[in-house]
Design a protein around this nucleic acid. Sequence first.
DNA 1: CTATTTAGACAGTTATTCTGACCATACCGC
DNA 2: GCGGTATGGTCAGAATAACTGTCTAAATAG
Lengths: 159, 159
Amino acid sequence: MDEIEVPVRRLTFGALFREPYAHYLGWLYARLQERGFPDIRVAHSAVLRTIDAERGSRVTTLAERAGMTKQSMAYLVDSLVELDYLEIVPDPDDKRAKLARLTRRGRKLVATAGALGAEYEALLAGRIGADEMAELRRLLTIVVDALPGWTPGEGGEDK
Amino acid sequence: MDEIEVPVRRLTFGALFREPYAHYLGWLYARLQERGFPDIRVAHSAVLRTIDAERGSRVTTLAERAGMTKQSMAYLVDSLVELDYLEIVPDPDDKRAKLARLTRRGRKLVATAGALGAEYEALLAGRIGADEMAELRRLLTIVVDALPGWTPGEGGEDK
DNA sequence: CTATTTAGACAGTTATTCTGACCATACCGC
DNA sequence: GCGGTATGGTCAGAATAACTGTCTAAATAG
């Protein structure tokens, strides 16, 4: 008896990570737009993910954490200041330095983005099942913890 | 007896997908550079992932598949022609149209990138264990299959 | 107190993507 | 087989997102 060939899709490794992430990004920024943050762009997340939410952070610190140049980070911070998500205050500890700090609106944005992340996760759990979602989270956490210090070509950046 | 608090890191949902993907991208392009493709950039992958490897594809088709405008895709195709990864030939089926087709070098690039994807997967399996890797692949495949047609805000793009 | 390091700013460049306006060819209805 | 619409592609211009290089001012180490 011949077997019927069941074409089990073997996605390329890149697609496995890229497609879920791309979908999540598209969803997230669409929701942010609806919820009163139409002017926020993906690049801004490099700032929002790395900033000290209470005290604020120096551009230099943000640049290091995000793995980009000071100039590039300064550009992003400027644009967030323009949009009233950040304000610049002098750093009391160093007269050369300034702190970029979240405004009220900035804090709302960060809170909303966090809630949306959880919302997406719940949505996905609804599609694939809560058990599978928990297992996926477990495995991805293991992966993330296994990453640091692999290749000399670095790899702490993103979009 | 008091429990000792074990701080189980709960990563944000975004980080769960972003960090592995970013690490993979950094690794992949560092390896491509070493293996004779120093001039290839992340944006080019939108072309290489979507092109018909034998026949070649029209810019319009590539743009649709990659979820970008014809103009943007034309820019990427141009740059790959410049770098001798693609060549432009007339489409025999339509006198208006042209096909972008892989050159010998282009075919080598695609083959190398595919092999590197598998290599990275093996490397990761070595770190987290083959069983866990198989489970991760299973779950991510489920996720990718569950994605299409969610949000009106689309979501088929990436870097 | 001087030399070095650090924080940030300014200038210029490149890459990646978008919109809008076009042109030429193909295809469809009559 | 002609006229209108759809389709494939291009040109021009702009916005965004990074980069390198240079420079000033303040802080810190000896």
